[in-house]
Design a protein around this nucleic acid. Sequence first.
DNA 1: CGCGAGCTTGATGCCGATCAATGCATGTGG
DNA 2: CCACATGCATTGATCGGCATCAAGCTCGCG
Lengths: 248, 248
Amino acid sequence: MSHNATVVPIKAADLKVACSNCNLRELCLPVGFTDQELGRLDDMVALRRSVRRGDTLFRAGDHFESLFAVRTGFFKTRVSSEDGRDQVTGFHMAGELLGLDGISSDRHTCDAVALEDSQVCVIPYGQLEALSREFTDLQRQFHRIMSREIVRDQGVMLLLGSMRAEERLAAFLLNLTQRLQARGFSGSSLVLRMTREEIGTYLGLKLETVSRCFSKFQDDGVLQVKQRQIEVLDAEALRELVNGSACQ
Amino acid sequence: MSHNATVVPIKAADLKVACSNCNLRELCLPVGFTDQELGRLDDMVALRRSVRRGDTLFRAGDHFESLFAVRTGFFKTRVSSEDGRDQVTGFHMAGELLGLDGISSDRHTCDAVALEDSQVCVIPYGQLEALSREFTDLQRQFHRIMSREIVRDQGVMLLLGSMRAEERLAAFLLNLTQRLQARGFSGSSLVLRMTREEIGTYLGLKLETVSRCFSKFQDDGVLQVKQRQIEVLDAEALRELVNGSACQ
DNA sequence: CGCGAGCTTGATGCCGATCAATGCATGTGG
DNA sequence: CCACATGCATTGATCGGCATCAAGCTCGCG
């Protein structure tokens, strides 16, 4: 159940972690709530959980009872086929919700693995349901988040179904930098939290291909690559690759 | 807005189309409802809409205000990149819900195209929100449906990211036959509603490759293929392909 | 009947997979 | 501090699956 992770009840004194005080609240579930609603959310989100790098937050087959909001750290989610093939279905950073897959059948259908030491807020699903019957804003925001996940998945399908290796990597990097920028980071400088193989398994490529694309981008002056430290030198070139306008 | 489709209010006499009387209710939104709940659903779902083969139910960019439940017919959904590449993101048959992508931003992000003359029930999203604050069962079922869509998308990602052409087609056919079987059809005999190109655009393959795979399956005695009329002769072979156990 | 959309089949080429060797950073124990 | 192991990344050589290009085929329909 806990997969080597510790469960920490939030102490009354530890107000920094309450939704009402969280600096992620504009990226997470409580977007645009009233103080009253925020207070009720604080009551509901009473648990945190720490997950060490390499450990799983949940696994396919686990009983589903809570959603998780990433507070700190970084996760990947992956599905596996019976014969052991993996597909990384997403990378998840602070403010993002994990576990939506579990609602459909009361069991999780994917694994969530921490790529660095991480902390999540535990959102008991039953309570979220109850509270969102009471607060229209919460209901709406929750539906938006689920819908956004569906839209995101459509984008990944487009990538996997129709793009070539360089385009995939460009799209991946642009997506990462955008999300980092929304969290106050640079947007042109980033440190990858995942290996080349994990990137490949996300993009439907082999790790050698990912590595070659990084080298190509470096040769072309689009990126500077030092292991996992990436500098985006020419974001426009990446955008043109994704949109195919460079082909015209 | 209406994209060449006609909007037909449901007449009081026309009770056959009410959710409470619909033979799809066990596959659609009202799974396991009480009579009272069904009555309220009937009030909400007061409109049908007909869509002719080739017409769109909605397009990316359209303002979102309703979900649609397929009553009769068959749809594909697709997303397009700026440079015109398409990805078919799904095929949708009776009882399935369309339009969930629109919730996140109040605009649709994909096109829904009828592959044959079809009819949908119009589910005004605002009313669905309101009613699902009142009825726990409706709320739960709606959440399950959204989550199921997320799980389905994960499966497509696995397919696109890690399977070879024959495996993709096998998975596609198994999925289709399962869903047809759940609707009372044969499970071994089916008529494809889509072209080879549409299958290819869904599976991340070119139409020639799809055609070759069909021929291969026929040569191997797994299928009998007459244009769009397919007989599954050896479902087990298809399953082994998908699971990769044939490789051992 | 003849047209056209969709399907099949063949020949060829390319992109990314695979196989293999090397490089590089980090960590550990002697 | 060095020797060595380990995990990850890079790079090269070769291979194979699918895309591409091209030609005919089938069937429904005006």
